[in-house]
Amino acid sequence: MAGALALAVLLAVASLHAEAVWLDVPQSGTKCVSEEIQSNVVVLTDYSIMYESHPYSHPTIAVKVTSPYGNTLHHSENSTVGQFAFTTAEAGNYVACFWVDSAEKGSGVSVNLDWKIGIATKDWDAIAKKEKIEGVELELRKLEVAVQAIHQNLIYLKERQVVYSTSL
């Protein structure tokens, strides 16, 4: 049980950070990423095509983000750069899919994806300026918010464990 709790805390802490990834999107086909997120969590994402592999062409991509129940939260076409933001309405797996939608032939594109969830979405510089806090006080505020997020994640994981146990 202690090992499961340690794993839960580790997963909760890991989920507090932003994740930046590069996706290799094939010329024909789709590349998707997903994240299991609780309800009432802010998600901010920036994406852009990396042009190093395409110095003379300008391919574009399409993006579609869906909720666990299949609702479209963001849809964009003919993009080279973009962003989406939403607050999760339900807990579950949120999926972002990318595909090349330009007519230019090539081997696909690389997409830089900066996916921020929860407290990673906070603009701490603006908060510090507004509330006139800095140094240790600011770091303590960040830790307080992180502890609250970890606590909420542990409650969520415990509820999921109870639901899973009763469904067996």
Rank of each mutant, 00 (worst) to 15 (best):
M1A: 15
A103P: 04
S39P: 06
A12Q: 04
I117Y: 00
I133T: 07
L7N: 13
L44W: 02
W99Q: 09
K129N: 10
A14G: 07
Q148Y: 07
Q27R: 10
T87L: 07
L10P: 00
L11G: 12
V42I: 11
S79W: 01
G108K: 06
H58N: 13
Q27F: 07
L113V: 15
K130Q: 15
F98S: 04
V13T: 13
Y56N: 13
Y47R: 04
E19F: 05
H17L: 10
I155K: 09
V100G: 00
I150Y: 00
E90D: 06
W115I: 12
L16C: 09
K116L: 01
P26M: 04
D24T: 14
I127R: 02
K130P: 04
K31H: 06
S76F: 01
Q152P: 02
T87E: 06
D101F: 05
A128L: 07
W124R: 06
A146W: 00
E90P: 03
C32P: 02
V9K: 06
T60I: 10
Y69M: 14
L143F: 09
K142N: 03
S67Y: 03
F86V: 15
H17R: 14
H54G: 08
W115E: 01
G92V: 09
K158N: 13
G29V: 13
K158F: 11
G135D: 06
E159R: 10
K129Q: 14
N93A: 08
D101Y: 06
V95G: 00
F86W: 12
S53V: 13
I155D: 04
S34Y: 10
L7A: 14
A20E: 15
V65N: 00
N112S: 11
G70V: 14
G29Q: 03
Y51C: 04
K132E: 04
I133Y: 00
I150L: 04
A8R: 06
Y51N: 12
E52A: 12
K132N: 13
L157S: 12
N40V: 08
P55E: 05
E90L: 10
K105D: 09
S165V: 15
A4V: 13
I61L: 07
V13A: 08
S79T: 11
A14L: 07
Y156F: 12
A126V: 13
Y156L: 11
I49V: 14
D125F: 04
I49C: 00
P68Q: 03
N112A: 10
S48R: 14
V21P: 00
A85V: 15
N112H: 12
S57F: 06
K64Y: 02
E139R: 12
G92C: 09
